[in-house]
Design a protein around this nucleic acid. Structure first.
Length: 622
RNA sequence: CGGGGAGUGGCGCAGUCCGGUAGCGCGCCUGGUUUGGGACCAGGAGGUCGCAGGUUCGAAUCCUGUCUCCCCGACCA
């Protein structure tokens, strides 16, 4: 105990010494020394300011310089601002460095995530980025994700990959640590660098190849347990985004080729987002376009009329037929051709609807899905413009569920310039699969309540996902249940893109002048602007306020730069976006002290120099 | 992978069509004058014009190849 006290005393003393020197240098030398001399002094003896990470900062020492013009590569507000404010620096396509202020924000976001994941019962771990390729062969994802994997070999030529996600590794970890239902429920998470060789990195930090991700995995013994774990993670996400100042909403999401039960994405709605979301104002239904359902127009039942050919010279599209034959869009049958993992697929959907390729992909369980190219169309004898499922053979036929109930449609006749009237499903043709493969669009009716759907763009911040037993089946992640029977554990996985949150925070919190950090994420609590240092006493006053702010426990960014007009400093303060700005200048002193204003306010108020910290406290109060 | 655009000093750009040895604004350095919303004067540093071949007396500029970056699409557990 005594020893500990001694250490504490010694450390405190060091700090006092540092502060003392700070005051000496600037209190006595700052205002009066010749200019060049002072600059030399600053550079020769940079001031250590407390422990790593938590320090105040002088702008004359801050690493990273603001830009007046945004680099031409950036075309969203968040990307431009993070570059102009020197928060990040690009190294290669989708590969970024973080500078001190940017990294500080990242750490704060991570801390919020930690606190909320811990609160949700998660336990933090750290799993390797380097992973043996065999593990990915075993899960089958070497094949399905092959293109996005960064691959490498170790010196013994063993194939390795850089982890794009950690389902494989976490199941391995689970197997070695858990054998019994008694060890569940279990939720582990990590905040770690992921690697994905994206086909096209884009949008600043929104789609990158190396990025920080919080990924969490839950293991439960039964499906009710999974539901509970999922809700806990979901609730944590709601709190995380709220604390980060991002108005993200949860929308139903496609669970992709991996399958699984429920899946929701947390989306921040903004025009600059790359995802499309369908929303129903009436009932609150919200879903990613890939997943969204809608109510299709129901047609009155009608007597099937006899099939008849009709000449349609030059009529190749649905719109052509509608005009030429005077039928409504929903009176036609649309044919679309795809190639799924090398095999041709014929898709039939009513003419008033479009194909949702995500739904189609899931139906086909296909890895690669693309529209069939012209060569493929020719090769398979399809008659583009008059293609028809009637009399078709030699390929799979998938029909949208809008088709069977729609009577007497106009469809192709598999002969150029000829169509059929009165095509009826069941009588004239049949599909291999009938299911919903239709894309919901703005203006469509909500599947849940019949209200009108609208579309919005959004940025995906996070994804929660009921995985089920896909990985524990494939990788043998089994446990003994109460009866001693071995069963695969039931998994959930929950991801947050930390860099995306960072970008989202800026996108959601800026104005034309710059960033407006939410106070709990700001790199500094307060931005102290010193002006007119050549006037007697001004620098000393600013230094005193700087010290006062630190003594009061605030982390301050102090613009102590000798050079720089008021305009430059104020514009930098607005760009960098700390919640509160304090100005000490000849004018402010003449007016009675320091000016204090919130980033969001236009006008400042003057407070006595000695009350600057108290005024900051008021300004930061919610 | 398909389509489009761009590589000239830290950032933004001109010069390329029509070949003659590189320029502007901001930033940076030195000195001075300034100081409340991106100041001014003077002086200065910094660029193998993405890279490699080729044509030419001579290439940022013309030709060929190649690399990189950005945008749209494809792709995105």
């Amino acid at each position: 105990m005594d020893d500990e006290d001694a250490v504490v005393r010694r450390v405190s003393k060091q700090f006092e010494g540092r502060r003392h020197r700070t005051l000496l240098w600037f209190g006595h030398g700052g205002g009066t020394a010749a200019r060049g001399q002072r600059a030399v002094t600053l550079r020769a003896r940079p001031i250590p300011c407390g422990p790593h990470g938590g320090s105040p900062m002088r702008m004359s020492r801050l690493f990273g310089k603001t830009l007046r013009n945004a680099p031409s590569d950036a075309d969203t507000a968040n990307h431009q601002l993070m570059l102009r404010a020197a928060l990040v620096q690009q190294l290669a396509a989708g590969v970024y460095s973080y500078l001190p202020m940017g990294w500080s924000v990242i750490r704060k976001i991570e801390q919020i995530i930690r606190e909320e994941m811990d609160r949700a019962g998660g336990q933090e771990v750290s799993m390797p980025a380097i992973q043996p390729a065999e593990l990915w062969d075993a899960s089958g994802r070497m094949e399905t994700m092959g293109d996005v994997l960064f691959k490498l070999q170790d010196r013994r030529e063993r194939e390795m990959i850089l982890g794009p996600t950690h389902e494989e590794v976490v199941v391995d970890l689970f197997k070695k640590q858990v054998q019994s239902y008694r060890d569940m429920p279990l939720m582990v998470y990590q905040i770690q660098t992921k690697f994905r060789d994206e086909a096209r990195p884009r949008g600043g930090l929104m789609r990158v190849r190396e990025f920080t991700m919080k990924d969490a995995y839950s293991f439960d013994a039964d499906w009710d347990g999974l539901d509970a774990s999922y809700i806990a993670a979901r609730d944590a996400y709601v709190r995380i985004f709220e604390r980060c100042g991002i108005p993200a909403i949860a929308v139903q999401a496609d669970s992709g080729a991996i399958g699984g039960k429920d899946s929701e994405e947390f989306i921040y709605l903004t025009e600059v987002g790359e995802d499309t979301v369908l929303l129903c104002e009436t009932c609150g239904y919200a879903a990613n376009e890939e997943k969204a359902d809608h109510k299709k127009r129901e047609l009155p039942d009608a007597e099937p009329l006899p099939l008849e050919e009709v000449a349609t010279p030059g009529q190749k599209t649905i719109d052509d037929l509608v005009k030429f034959l005077g039928v409504p869009h929903h009176g036609t049958l649309k044919a679309v051709f795809y190639e799924a993992d090398g095999a041709p697929v014929f898709v039939a959907i009513r003419g008033d609807l479009d194909v949702n390729e995500a739904k189609l992909r899931n139906t086909l369980k296909a890895v690669a899905l693309a529209p069939l190219d012209d060569d493929g169309v020719r090769k398979h004898g399809l008659v583009a413009g008059s293609a028809s499922p009637v009399g078709l053979s030699g390929m799979r036929v998938i029909a949208d569920d809008s088709v069977p109930g729609s009577r007497n449609l106009v469809a192709g006749a598999n002969k150029p310039d000829v169509h059929y009237r009165n095509v009826n499903y069941g009588r004239d043709w049949q599909a291999d699969v009938v299911t919903d493969i239709s894309r919901a669009r703005a203006g469509d009716a909500c599947a849940r309540c019949g209200g009108t759907l609208q579309t919005k763009r959004g940025m995906e911040m996070g994804h929660v996902f009921k995985l089920g037993t896909v990985y524990t089946d494939r990788l043998d992640g089994r446990f003994a249940d109460e009866a001693g029977e071995l069963k695969p554990a039931i998994m959930g996985c929950y991801g947050i893109g930390v860099g995306r949150v960072f970008a989202g925070v800026i996108e959601a919190n800026h104005d034309e002048r710059g960033i407006i950090w939410p106070p709990n994420l700001a790199p500094y609590d307060v931005h102290l602007v010193g002006l007119g240092f050549d006037k007697p006493g001004v620098r000393e006053s600013a230094e005193q306020v700087y010290q006062q702010l630190q003594d009061a426990g605030y982390k301050a960014l102090y613009d102590d730069r000798e050079e720089g007009s008021a305009g430059v400093k104020f514009n930098d303060a607005d760009l960098l976006g700390m919640p509160v700005r304090v100005t000490v200048s000849p004018r402010s002193i003449e007016n009675g002290g320091a000016e204090v204003k919130r980033r969001t306010e236009k006008d400042a108020k003057v407070v006595p120099l000695g009350e600057a910290a108290a005024a900051v406290r008021d300004a930061l109060a919610p």
